[in-house]
């Protein structure tokens, strides 16, 4: 009961106390993961490893299972089989969404999700890590250090001038950046970014590419994207997902020459439209 009252954030029985251990150079492990929805295998024996500090792009046709993979990593969907580890020691399948968020995995949704009736600044404040216990929540003030952190993120995502505006009236691209800013406020080790440039102008795409590239190193970043030009501009390593499995993995130029990848993209792509 007292635990319940003092913690509105993650915690509870399964909360790991240890920080993530990426000493082997790998931050995220997915091994042999499968998910079935009503008999349909959305994810089929998928294995994927994300290195510490890496910027990874995941591509694949519609329905390949990219969003479902993020659902599994973030605890929204529990797989039927397989192992999902964060670092050496943290079994993500034992945790629920808030707990996974708290240990350092942030997620941007495919459809931009910011809290529209709140200002840009309030959205970032909402996402701030370390402010999620009841006592920390029952305040109407921002401490100086918190203000500085928010200012730094505003600067980084280029929304300083918009800080006092309602998130609902931002342009589409600005909402996407605000959502990325919210992830940064969580101070995650791993960012999962689902289709960040859908609907963006070329100039906005360029800024987003700069932003994501600047995050790699400090964080691991997994970007799901359909736009090949954008993928080319940011990725060193690309994973192609198809029918819930990894079809190929490597540098984009090599993949574009890979007959299996061409088959999936051009074959299905032409058939689909």
């Amino acid at each position: 009961m007292s635990e319940l009252i003092s913690e509105l954030d993650a915690g509870g029985m399964h909360a790991p106390v240890e920080p993530v251990d990426a000493s082997h150079g790998i931050l995220l492990y997915l091994e042999g993961v499968s998910v079935t929805f009503d008999g349909f295998k959305a994810i089929d024996n998928l294995s994927l490893y994300v290195a510490d500090g890496e910027l990874r792009c995941v591509i694949g046709p519609n329905g390949a299972g990219k969003t479902t993979m993020m659902d599994i990593i973030t605890g929204k969907t529990k797989p039927d089989a397989g192992r999902v580890f964060f670092g050496q020691t943290i079994d993500l399948l034992q945790l629920d969404e808030p707990a996974i968020a708290r240990i350092g995995i942030g997620r941007k949704f495919q459809k931009p999700t910011v809290i529209e009736p709140l200002t840009v600044l309030e959205n970032l404040e909402l996402a701030m890590s370390g402010a999620k216990r009841l006592r920390g929540l029952l305040t109407t003030r921002l401490a100086g250090a918190e203000r500085d952190r928010i200012a730094a993120v505003l600067e980084r995502v280029g929304l300083t001038a918009q800080a006092g505006r309602l998130a609902g009236i931002l342009a589409h691209g600005q909402k996407q950046w605000l959502e990325i800013g919210m992830l940064l406020m969580q101070e995650p080790r791993l960012l999962l970014v689902d289709e960040p440039v859908a609907g963006m102008t070329p100039a906005e795409m360029e800024r987003t590419a700069e932003l994501l590239k600047s995050l790699a190193g400090e964080h691991s970043v997994v970007v799901v994207e359909h736009d090949m030009g954008f993928v080319r501009s940011i990725a060193d390593k690309v994973t192609v997902l198809h029918q819930g499995r990894v079809l190929a993995e490597g540098a984009l130029e090599d993949l574009q020459a890979d007959p299996r990848v061409i088959e999936v993209y051009l074959g299905d792509g032409h058939a689909a439209g």
Binding site: E7, L8, D9, A10, G11, G12, T74, K76, E97, P98, A99, A101, R102, G106, R107, F109, T113, V114, I115, E116, P117, L126, A127, S129, K132, M182, Q186
Partner: peptide, 13 residues
Amino acid sequence: DAEPRARFLGYRV
């Protein structure tokens, strides 16, 4: 307005 967002930010909704 966005319950999943609140969850993925780490709040025990």
